[in-house]
C-alpha cells in the first residue's frame, strides 16, 4: 500500500513536473547566456567564458534553486491543497478510523517521493539549462558552437555537482514537509485550503533561499 502510494506520488511530483521544469530550465539557461554576454560586452572577457558561466551558474545556483522554487509553486501548493481537501472532506478522519497511520501513509509517502524525484528533476534542469544557453548563443549568432563547448569544459569542478545534489535533497525535504504540514493541519473550508496552499508556497520559498545561503556559506 505504502509503496503504491509512493509510486503514485512520484508520478504526480516527478513525471508531471518534467514539462514545466524543462521549459523553465531551457529559458533560464538562455537568459543567463544572453544577459551575461550583454553584461560583459565592455570587458576583455573571452567569449568562451559564457559556456563556463552558464554551466557553473546552472549547476551551483539556477538548477537547484529556481527549479525548487517553481516546484514549491506547483508541487507544494498541490500537496497542500490535496491534503487540505482530504482534511475538510473528512477523508483523513475516515483513514484514522480505519486504523491507518495517516501521517506516514499520506505525508511519509509524499516525502519519500519528493526526495527521490526532485533531485532527478534538478539534474535534468541543469542539463537543459546548459542546452538552453547553447541554443541562445548559437541562435543569436554570438559565437560558434565550438567556442561555447570549449567554455563548458573550462575549470570544471566535480565538487559543484555534489553541492547541487546536496541542495536538491535539502530543498526537496523542505518543500515536501512544509507543504504537507500546511495541508495536513487545515481547518475550515475551501478558503482555508487556498490559504494553506499559498502559505505552503511562501514558506517553502523563504526556507529554500535561506538554506541556499547557509549551504553556500558552509560549503564554499
Amino acid at each position: 500500500m505504502y509503496w503504491r502510494e509512493s509510486m503514485r506520488q512520484m508520478n504526480s511530483i516527478g513525471i508531471e513536473s518534467i514539462p514545466i521544469v524543462a521549459v523553465v530550465a531551457l529559458f533560464i539557461g538562455a537568459v543567463t547566456a544572453v544577459q551575461f554576454a550583454y553584461q560583459v560586452q565592455d570587458f576583455a572577457v573571452p567569449m568562451y567564458y559564457i559556456g563556463f558561466i552558464v554551466r557553473d551558474s546552472m549547476i551551483i545556483e539556477m538548477a537547484p534553486t529556481i527549479t525548487c522554487m517553481i516546484l514549491a509553486g506547483k508541487v507544494g501548493s498541490n500537496m497542500a491543497s490535496e491534503l487540505g481537501n482530504m482534511r475538510i472532506t473528512e477523508q483523513i478522519d475516515a483513514l484514522e478510523i480505519m486504523g491507518v497511520n495517516t501521517s506516514s501513509y499520506l505525508v511519509g509517502t509524499k516525502l519519500v517521493a519528493g526526495l527521490i524525484t526532485i533531485p532527478m528533476l534538478i539534474i535534468l534542469a541543469a542539463l537543459l539549462g546548459i542546452v538552453g544557453g547553447l541554443l541562445a548563443v548559437v541562435l543569436s549568432d554570438l559565437m560558434p558552437l565550438g567556442v561555447y563547448e570549449r567554455g563548458l569544459h573550462l575549470f570544471f569542478v566535480p565538487f559543484n555537482v555534489k553541492m547541487m545534489m546536496i541542495k536538491g535533497f535539502v530543498f526537496a525535504f523542505i518543500l515536501s514537509t512544509v507543504a504537507c504540514y500546511h495541508g495536513y493541519h487545515v481547518k475550515g473550508g475551501a478558503i482555508q485550503i487556498g490559504e494553506a496552499s499559498t502559505k505552503a508556497v511562501v514558506h517553502s520559498n523563504i526556507l529554500i533561499l535561506l538554506s541556499d545561503y547557509v549551504i553556500a556559506e558552509i560549503l564554499l
Binding site: 498541490n78 475538510i88 487556498g194 496552499s197
Partner: peptide, 8 residues
C-alpha cells in the same frame, strides 16, 4: 474544492 486547488 479540489478543482480550485488544481486551478491555483
Amino acid at each position: 474544492a479540489l478543482d480550485i486547488g488544481k486551478a491555483s
